[in-house]
């Protein structure tokens, strides 16, 4: 029921965030206008990591308490998380081209973000391959939890690997200190992405519930009497 409202909120916050990002925030003196992609890139990267944690949380709850809804929430979150991971990678390479001169570098963050995308894909592929929904949920839950244990290990191993192989030619961490309006734009965009995630996850969860419970009376009633 709440899904459309969150959708409206998402649209409002995204519009506000983009407005701040494109019209209010000052031009960066080093990177020019190109830096403005930060307003999509950084919130998407935040969400991509955060959604995996939320997904693993729901998966864990489902595995522990054997609740059905939590498994549905986990599988509803996965595509949104994968989408944000992809957006973060995509905008990152669009941003990298004008500022670093390449589409891709084997930087620790980029690499671990790419592996995160693979983890999302693995989770969705596993769920898609198993026909029985309960088994799919629980198998996905084990995988998501294994992934969550692995993410910090992956991140640190990739960081060491990176420092071993190449010098610090580009560094994301030494960004120039940020103007307050830029930060505000990013936070507002992050809220927009938050609400978008909630809206899509809820909408998707609703479809999953209806699909799985299609044999029950209440779904039949719901289908017959559109509100």
């Amino acid at each position: 029921m709440l899904a459309p409202w969150f959708g409206v909120l998402a649209a409002a916050f995204c519009a506000a965030g983009l407005y701040i990002g494109f019209f209010i925030a000052p031009t960066d003196h080093q990177q020019g206008e190109a830096y403005r992609i930060i307003f999509i890139h950084v919130p998407a990267a935040w969400m991509s990591m955060f959604l995996y944690l939320v997904m693993a949380f729901w998966a864990g709850v489902g595995l522990m308490f054997n609740t059905r809804l939590s498994g549905m929430m986990a599988s509803a979150l996965a595509p949104t998380g994968a989408l944000f991971t992809f957006i973060a990678l995509w905008t990152g390479s669009l941003w990298g081209k004008p500022t670093w001169g390449t589409w891709w570098v084997w930087d620790a963050r980029l690499t671990s973000e790419l592996i995160l995308l693979f983890l999302y894909f693995g989770f969705m592929a596993l769920q898609a391959a198993i026909d029985e929904p309960r088994r799919a949920d629980r198998a996905g839950a084990v995988l998501a939890l294994t992934g969550v244990v692995n993410i910090p290990i992956i991140y640190f191993s990739v960081r060491w690997w990176n420092t071993l192989h190449q010098g610090a030619s580009v560094s994301l961490t030494s960004a120039p200190t940020m103007a307050a309006t830029m930060f505000a734009g990013m936070v507002v965009m992050a809220f927009g992405f938050w609400f978008y995630s909630i809206a899509t996850a809820l909408a998707r969860a609703r479809c999953i519930i209806l699909e799985r419970e299609r044999a029950t009376d209440w779904v039949a009633d719901y289908a017959r009497v559109p509100k």
Binding site: I115, F118, L119, F121, G122, A125, L126, A129, L143, T146, G147, N150, I153, I154, S157, V158, W160, W161, L164
Partner: peptide, 20 residues
């Protein structure tokens, strides 16, 4: 194929540290 998709990302730390 599914197994490869699931397992290979999780192998990354071992590969990185092992070859490292």
């Amino acid at each position: 194929v599914l197994l490869a998709l699931l397992v290979l990302p999780l192998y990354v730390p071992v590969l990185v540290i092992g070859a490292g």
